[in-house]
């Protein structure tokens, strides 16, 4: 079942709600106001809304300057332009300078669909994860984004938020509460753990159902905060299941598979398989084509689980 609201609607609703009491919230856009739909914020708070035009590097620098004066700027663009286009600005003016800037990258991975390879970020979480102290979150659905937004505002430090603009598959009930720094165990199981993020969560749940029909008991853990990653939940789960699959709408290099593998190698080595983009560029297409093209279907998770089970000691 789909969410009733688009994530961009939740994003703007949350900003508007918080802006009533938090006068420091500022929205900064680079000509994609109509895409992220923050026009309602502009209408309500014209004095706290800045559109810098198509100039992402300057957008990040302006946000850093605003933050030095106590503002809490939220800026956004399509994920590749909110991250790799202005990487050094984020690195130096925001992170190295310890400025409280929130960066929103939209249309993660294959959800960029018809914008194609130039706009299809399989690397954004990887490059952001590589910046010291950068918190990297991919909210799963509307309920989660709604719960996390006030926490992101209260958290004093840079955050990268990777969100779909449109409606997600609903995973969580409205009003659900999430800890910004914890993973969420959606389904308990003993044979294999599936760690999933973003659009891969619903696919992981479908794969778990199929595995169940064969008597395989899969645990599904939604890791939405990739950094800092919830080591405790990962270790607890794989200590029991002794095998895992990591499913992400992202390049296998330096993404969630990388992040989870770092934890496994250091604390609890078990066999792991990745369902991820294999070092490729994106291309135009609709989701059904792209998920097949890049191997991001529920069936790919199912196959990976079967494979990892053969490697289990």
């Amino acid at each position: 079942m789909q969410d009733t609201k688009e994530l961009r609607e939740i994003y703007c609703d949350s900003l508007l709600e918080m802006a009533e009491t938090n006068k420091n919230i500022v929205v900064v856009e680079a000509d994609l106001t109509n895409c992220i739909k923050t026009g309602r914020f502009k209408a309500a708070h014209p004095d706290r809304f800045i559109n810098v035009g198509i100039a992402e590097a300057n957008m990040i620098g302006v946000c850093a300057g605003l933050a030095t004066c106590g503002k809490v700027p939220f800026c956004s663009s399509f994920a590749p332009f909110a991250t790799r286009r202005c990487y050094d600005q984020i690195f130096i003016s925001v992170a190295y300078s310890k400025q409280n800037v929130k960066i929103v990258g939209t249309d993660p991975g294959i959800t960029a669909e018809l914008n194609g390879g130039t706009h299809m970020p399989f690397e954004d979480m990887g490059i952001m994860r590589n910046i010291p102290n950068m918190v990297c979150i991919e909210p799963t659905d509307a309920a989660m984004l709604k719960s996390l937004m006030p926490k992101i505002v209260d958290y004093n430090g840079p955050v990268y938020l990777r969100i779909m603009r449109k409606k997600c598959e609903q995973i969580y009930a409205e009003g659900a509460d999430f800890d910004m720094f914890k993973a969420f165990t959606l389904r308990q199981g003993n044979d294999v753990t599936i760690f999933a993020s973003g659009i891969m969560v619903s696919r992981a749940l479908a794969a778990a159902e199929k595995l169940k029909s064969e008597g395989i008991d899969a645990e599904v853990v939604n890791i939405y905060t990739w950094k800092p990653i919830d080591v405790e939940t990962i270790v607890k789960s794989v200590s029991r299941t002794r095998a895992c699959v990591v499913a992400e709408n992202h390049n296998v290099h330096n993404g969630l598979f990388g992040a989870v593998s770092e934890v496994l190698a250091e604390y609890c080595p078990v066999p792991a398989e990745a369902v991820a983009v294999r070092d490729q560029f994106g291309e135009v297409g609709k989701i059904p084509y792209l998920e097949e093209r890049f191997g991001l279907r529920a069936n790919d998770i199912y196959d990976a689980a079967k494979k990892v089970l053969t490697r289990k000691n």
Binding site: A57, N58, G61, V62, C69, F91, I92, S93
Partner: peptide
């Protein structure tokens, strides 16, 4: 007032400070 060293960045932050 601002970290700088990677050229071109301080001036953007200054614009942000002026907007604030």
């Amino acid at each position: 007032d601002m970290t700088a060293g990677s050229l071109g960045q301080g001036i953007s932050a200054a614009v942000g400070m002026a907007l604030a």
